[in-house]
Structures are given as structure tokens and as C-alpha cells.
């Protein structure tokens, strides 16, 4: 192993929207793009819980979630020179790569029956069933949950089925038995409300 862990417990930063973390990740991506493996190790330590947790939430199977996370990190490493800070935060860029891979995995691998079971498991909201010891992460999680609570129920349903469940907007429309246009609107309005509640700069 060329790079040793920085600490026995990888540090988890305070939150996805923290300015310090955001700047740190941008700098680490820049160094990674020049082949700096130590920088990438730090990048990993700062993001692994989010990356793994998101993959796990969408894919569900632990072994497959690990594969998705590993593939995503490899892609992040390879694409690191192509991150463009003017188009969003480093964390959002990374999590987009993770999310797309996770969604591809469940959409390609799955029978209709398995999808129905997944729907039953997703239910009408996230389970928040994950224990994370980091107090700061818990605080950030609580903030996001409160922000989610500001959505209407139908908005939250559409947003979480898509993001956590990996369903397309057409599938969400079928599952909820509402017109496609309604689903599109719920997704957009729901995300706008989430964004405003989180204080993301528009």
C-alpha cells in the first residue's frame, strides 16, 4: 500500500456546504490531477462516508455498493483534471459521479420484480437508518433532514424516490400513478425548496 491512513479514524468534515471543506476538496482534486496519491488519500478520507453511504443507499447490496464506490473513486481520480469549479462544488461533482454509477447499476441489473421490492423498501421516504458516530456529520445530517421536512409530502416523495431509489421520472410517475408533467414539477419544485432551505447559493 503506497499511502498510509492519516489516522486510525478518518476525519469526517463538518458538512457538505462548509467553505473550508469545499476549498480543501478543490485543492486536493487539483493535486490529484497531477498524480498526487497522498492528496487523493486525503480526499478519500474526507468523503468516503458520504460516497459509500450514498452508493449503499441506492444499490443496497453491501458488496455491490463497495464496487460502485471503488469504481466511482477510480473515475474521480481519472477525471480529476476535468473538474471545473465554476460549474459547482467539488463534493457535488464527486457525488454526481457516485450517484450516476449507483443508478446505472440498479437500472441495468434489475428485474421488474426486484424493482418492485426496491420500491417497497424505499417507501415514501429515506430511512435514516445509518449510524454515524461523527457528531459534526450528524449535525449536518440533521440540517438536511430539516430541509427535507420543508418539502411538501408529494415533493419529498418524488425527490427521494429518484435520488435514493434510483427511479427515472417516468418510473416515479408510474409508481405514484400521476402524470409525468406533475412528477417533473414536483422534482424541480422540491429541489428548489430544498436548495433554499439549505441556503445553497442559487
Amino acid at each position: 500500500m503506497p499511502v498510509q491512513p492519516a489516522a486510525s479514524t478518518p476525519p469526517e468534515p463538518s458538512g457538505g456546504v462548509g467553505a473550508d471543506l469545499a476549498q480543501r476538496l478543490v485543492a486536493l482534486l487539483a493535486r490529484s490531477s497531477r498524480g498526487d496519491e497522498h492528496a487523493f488519500a486525503e480526499l478519500y478520507d474526507l468523503t468516503a462516508s458520504r460516497v459509500h453511504g450514498l452508493a449503499r443507499r441506492v444499490v443496497r447490496d453491501p458488496a455491490q455498493a463497495e464496487e460502485v464506490a471503488q469504481e466511482a473513486y477510480l473515475e474521480i481520480w481519472r477525471q480529476s483534471a476535468r473538474f471545473d469549479a465554476s460549474r459547482g462544488s467539488a463534493l457535488a461533482w464527486m457525488l454526481t459521479i457516485v450517484h450516476r454509477r449507483a443508478v446505472d447499476r440498479v437500472r441495468s441489473a434489475e428485474s421488474a420484480q426486484a424493482r418492485d421490492q426496491r420500491y417497497a423498501a424505499v417507501g415514501d421516504g429515506p430511512e435514516y437508518d445509518v449510524v454515524d458516530e461523527e457528531v459534526t456529520t450528524r449535525m449536518e445530517s440533521a440540517r438536511v433532514r430539516r430541509a427535507l421536512d420543508s418539502l411538501t409530502e408529494v415533493q419529498r416523495e418524488a425527490v427521494t424516490l429518484a435520488y435514493y431509489g434510483g427511479y427515472t421520472h417516468r418510473e416515479v410517475a408510474d409508481l405514484l400513478d400521476v402524470p409525468l408533467g406533475t412528477v417533473k414539477t414536483r422534482m424541480r419544485d422540491g429541489l428548489i425548496r430544498l436548495r433554499d432551505a439549505l441556503g445553497v447559493e442559487a
Binding site: R50, G53, L54, V200, E201
Partner: peptide, 15 residues
Amino acid sequence: REAASALAEPVADAP
């Protein structure tokens, strides 16, 4: 996208 990515926070899970 920034808002959607925040949804990873509540499901964070150390690998």
C-alpha cells in the same frame, strides 16, 4: 445539484 448532493449527508456510512 448542490441541493441533491446534500441528500448524501443523512445516509453517510463509513465504509
